[in-house]
Amino acid sequence: EVPFKVVAQFPYKSDYEDDLNFEKDQEIIVTSVEDAEWYFGEYQDSNGDVIEGIFPKSFVAVQG
């Protein structure tokens, strides 16, 4: 069931425009499960802007 919160276990950096880049310990709200390997989610950056994109499930852990 979406949405749910995950926390980055590792930093994720990608050159693909659709990917969500983040640092370790970033909290991310997952709004869609793309497939067995990928989530789609969002978070607010330090400027208060909402950043969204896809990212690999293996880089995050589900909270709770």
Rank of each mutant, 00 (worst) to 15 (best):
E1M: 11
E1I: 12
E1R: 11
E1W: 12
E1Y: 11
V2T: 11
V2W: 06
V2S: 04
P3G: 05
P3W: 07
P3V: 05
K5P: 05
K5R: 12
V6S: 01
V6E: 03
V6K: 00
V6G: 02
V6C: 08
V6D: 02
V7N: 04
V7L: 06
V7F: 07
V7A: 03
A8M: 01
Q9D: 04
F10R: 13
F10L: 11
F10E: 07
F10W: 12
P11D: 11
P11Q: 08
P11V: 05
P11I: 05
Y12I: 03
Y12A: 07
Y12R: 08
K13S: 10
K13D: 06
K13W: 13
K13C: 14
K13M: 10
K13V: 10
K13L: 09
S14Q: 03
S14F: 01
D15N: 13
D15G: 12
D15H: 10
D15L: 11
Y16A: 14
Y16P: 06
E17T: 11
E17F: 09
E17Q: 12
E17S: 10
E17V: 13
E17I: 12
E17K: 13
E17L: 11
D18T: 14
D18R: 15
D18V: 11
D18N: 14
D19G: 15
L20F: 09
L20Y: 02
L20I: 05
L20V: 00
N21T: 10
N21D: 05
N21Q: 11
N21C: 12
F22M: 03
F22W: 01
E23A: 09
E23M: 07
E23V: 07
K24W: 04
K24V: 10
K24E: 06
K24S: 06
D25V: 03
D25H: 10
Q26N: 00
E27N: 05
E27C: 11
E27K: 04
E27Q: 08
I28D: 00
I28S: 00
I29G: 00
I29L: 13
V30W: 01
V30D: 01
V30C: 04
T31A: 03
T31P: 01
T31Y: 06
S32E: 07
S32T: 05
S32H: 13
V33A: 08
V33I: 15
E34F: 15
E34L: 15
E34P: 15
D35F: 08
D35S: 13
D35M: 07
D35I: 06
A36P: 13
A36G: 13
E37L: 10
W38H: 14
W38R: 10
W38S: 07
W38F: 11
W38V: 05
Y39K: 00
Y39T: 00
F40S: 04
F40T: 06
F40G: 04
F40P: 00
G41E: 01
G41Q: 01
E42N: 14
E42D: 03
E42T: 12
Y43L: 05
Q44G: 04
Q44M: 14
Q44H: 10
Q44P: 06
Q44R: 13
Q44V: 14
D45V: 07
S46E: 12
S46N: 10
S46T: 11
N47K: 09
G48H: 04
D49Y: 11
D49R: 14
V50G: 03
V50H: 08
I51Y: 14
I51K: 14
I51C: 13
I51N: 10
E52F: 13
G53L: 04
G53C: 05
I54P: 05
I54Y: 15
I54E: 04
I54T: 14
I54H: 15
P56S: 04
K57H: 05
K57A: 10
S58N: 09
S58Y: 10
S58R: 12
S58C: 15
F59Y: 13
A61W: 09
A61K: 14
V62I: 13
V62M: 13
Q63S: 12
Q63N: 09
Q63G: 10
G64T: 11
